[in-house]
């Protein structure tokens, strides 16, 4: 494992992703759903909304770092969380 050069931050990141996937799997088993059509204009499931949230958050961080540097990453974190919440509510 040493060759993979783990850090607490990246381990936490992948841990959260894994946790999200497990939660999504359990939800899919115990609370099955049907896709719904929201602001994106096409039917989405929970999984779609999670994917759109994650990829959108990554883009938010890239744009933030591009525009105002990497000094304070709590702002893009907040924006990304708001965006994810909006996606889960309205997409």
């Amino acid at each position: 494992m040493a060759w993979m050069a783990w850090t607490w931050a990246t381990a936490g990141f992948f841990g959260v992703i894994l946790l999200l996937l497990i939660i999504m799997t359990l939800l899919a088993i115990f609370r099955p759903e049907t896709p719904r059509r929201g602001v994106l204009g096409f039917p989405t499931t929970r999984g779609d909304r999670l994917f759109v949230s994650l990829i959108g958050s990554a883009i938010i961080f890239v744009v933030w770092i591009r525009v105002s540097g990497a000094d304070n990453l709590w702002y893009p974190t907040g924006i990304a969380l708001l965006y994810a919440a909006a996606m889960f509510r309205f997409a």
């Binding site: 050069a5 783990w6 850090t7 990141f13």
Partner: peptide, 16 residues
Amino acid sequence: MMTVVNYSVQDTMGQN
């Protein structure tokens, strides 16, 4: 891919 993510937040002088 996970290793690439790990590398992206660290610097190295070699020797792992």
